[in-house]
Computed example of a mutant assay.
Amino acid sequence: MNTAALSRSHNRLRELAPGFAVSAMVAAAASFLSEHYGAPVMLFALLLGMALNFLSVEGQCKPGIEYTARTVLRLGVALLGLRLTLPQIAALGWKPAALVVVVVTVTIVLSIVVARWLGFNRLFGLLTGGATAICGASAALALSAALPTHPQKEKATLFTVIGVSALSTIAMIAYPMIARWFDLSPLQAGVFLGATIHDVAQVVGAGYSMSRETGDAATVVKLMRVAMLLPVIVCATMVTRAQSTGGKRPPLLPGFAVGFLVLACINSTGWVPPAVQHLGNDLSRWALVIAISALGMKTQLKELASVGFKPIALMVGETVFLVALVLVLLRWGM
């Protein structure tokens, strides 16, 4: 029995290894380019992956690419929990937390409504709105994993990742200038940057480019937004359960979301050494980059080129609305 199980595991590993290896190599190349040219690593991973999309059509790499785009993605999302601690969130008080809840909720709801008005499926609005309101490419990948299977799902996911990565890079440069223009205090500037820039890395870069106080506040507010990923995933899963007809319904809280919650709770105890936290963050980053490389290999560039103007307008509109809403709430004293 043990021999048979070992044999099956060995055969499965041999089947998945080529696709995973090529995804990892694409991720390594993307990281190298990102470090040397300053563009988002997710964007490089997508573009390099799409250049190798022929590998996912047939041949030895196909099973491993499918596995990487699905299971490795979930692992990366679960490990995001090691970025969170409850004391970090409590340190800024209730006002920034309330601002984050309002901003995330209103942005996602409005995105769903506008997406329907533009003729898209409401799930596309949930995907783009969640990516814009929570944590960029990571949120897009997490929500995609929780949403029901759809013929256009991977295309929508890749478009969203490309959009938020590009917009986040622009925001990292432009938003500190906006904070200075509105004469925001260091704490207010940190709240503004943490509540509006899509990706964690760009939040850190923009915040600490202004001051240490701004960088610290921006990072914690951003982590509050990351914490919103869990309730939004639950909502997405409830939609999936409602749309499933017959057969076994998916669990209310997916396994990767449970992992996210458990790791966040463990990390909040203070028992996790900093070295383990850094290792978990690095593993999460690599898992997500490898997964997005595999997703890129599953998509052809001509499919993304056919999305048209409306999806672009939707994502740009969500980003502009998020900035305006945060500035208004800050002026109201939140």
Rank of each mutant, 00 (worst) to 15 (best):
R180V: 10
G76T: 11
T132N: 14
G125N: 11
V26T: 15
L184H: 12
C135S: 07
L73P: 13
A39N: 05
F159L: 14
A174I: 10
K155E: 06
R249A: 15
W94H: 12
L75M: 13
M1H: 05
A4Q: 14
A90S: 09
G81V: 07
T169M: 13
R241Q: 14
F120S: 04
F32I: 14
L184W: 06
R122Q: 13
F182I: 05
H150Q: 10
V320G: 00
A78Y: 03
A137V: 03
V258S: 01
V102I: 15
T219I: 05
H36E: 03
S138Q: 02
N2Q: 03
F120V: 09
G93D: 11
V103Q: 05
E15F: 08
M42G: 00
T105I: 08
T107R: 08
A97W: 11
T240Y: 13
L301E: 06
T237L: 03
Y67R: 06
P96A: 01
A131I: 12
G38P: 07
G280A: 08
R241M: 12
L252V: 15
R331P: 11
L46K: 00
G246I: 00
L279T: 04
C265E: 00
F309Y: 06
V203Y: 13
A29V: 15
L288P: 14
L13Y: 11
F54S: 10
V103S: 10
L126K: 04
W94M: 12
G308R: 02
A140R: 02
A313M: 03
L283P: 09
V204P: 02
L187E: 15
K302W: 01
A145P: 11
M210Q: 08
T3Y: 06
N281F: 03
T269I: 06
L193G: 08
M42P: 00
A140D: 07
L325I: 12
A287H: 05
V77A: 03
C135W: 04
L304C: 02
L329D: 02
L143D: 05
Q243T: 15
M297K: 00
A140H: 04
T85Y: 09
F309P: 01
L263T: 11
T71D: 00
K310A: 13
I292S: 01
S244A: 15
L55E: 01
S244G: 06
L263Y: 11
S9N: 03
G81P: 05
S284A: 15
K62L: 09
N11L: 14
S138K: 00
S293K: 07
V103H: 01
P254W: 04
R74V: 08
T269E: 03
